[in-house]
């Protein structure tokens, strides 16, 4: 499971970085989204991978921390998703504004002169 997760994060990060460095705004935003998925998975990963383990204490009785998963990374991921979603939406608006003002979807606002 660790290997699959690591490879998955690696592929997403690689594709994300490549897309981020491309000249079209659409590629940039897809790249940023992929990167943020990779980062979110990575945050999950640092808490340690456990199958079928709850992150919160049971309502009654004494719980064994060894059978539970670390709740902090999950809380972090939740916050990161919300913030990432909001900033991506905002970025999309700026990209649309740029498209409208310059008439091109190049990140520099003009096509490369030949």
């Amino acid at each position: 499971m660790e290997l699959v997760l690591a490879i998955g994060i690696g592929i997403m990060t690689g594709s994300g970085v490549w897309l981020l460095l491309r000249p079209r705004t659409y590629q940039v935003i897809v790249g940023l989204s992929l990167l943020s998925y990779a980062v979110n998975l990575f945050i999950f990963g640092v808490g340690g991978l456990k199958k079928n383990a709850p992150p919160i204490l049971p309502y009654s009785g004494v719980a064994n921390p060894a059978t539970m998963t670390d709740p902090v990374p999950q809380a972090l991921v939740l916050t990161a998703i919300v913030i990432g979603f909001a900033t991506t939406a905002l970025f999309l608006v700026v990209m649309l504004a740029s498209r409208g003002l310059t008439g091109t979807d190049h990140v520099d606002g003009r096509e490369k002169s030949r």
């Binding site: 981020l20 705004t25 940023l32 980062v39 990575f42 700026v94 740029s98 003002l101 520099d108």
Partner: peptide, 21 residues
Amino acid sequence: RVKAGLHYIAVNLGAALLFLI
């Protein structure tokens, strides 16, 4: 402003991801 903002936001979103890592 929109052009400068586009670059500024892209750089800072990237920085935010590094922050999280």
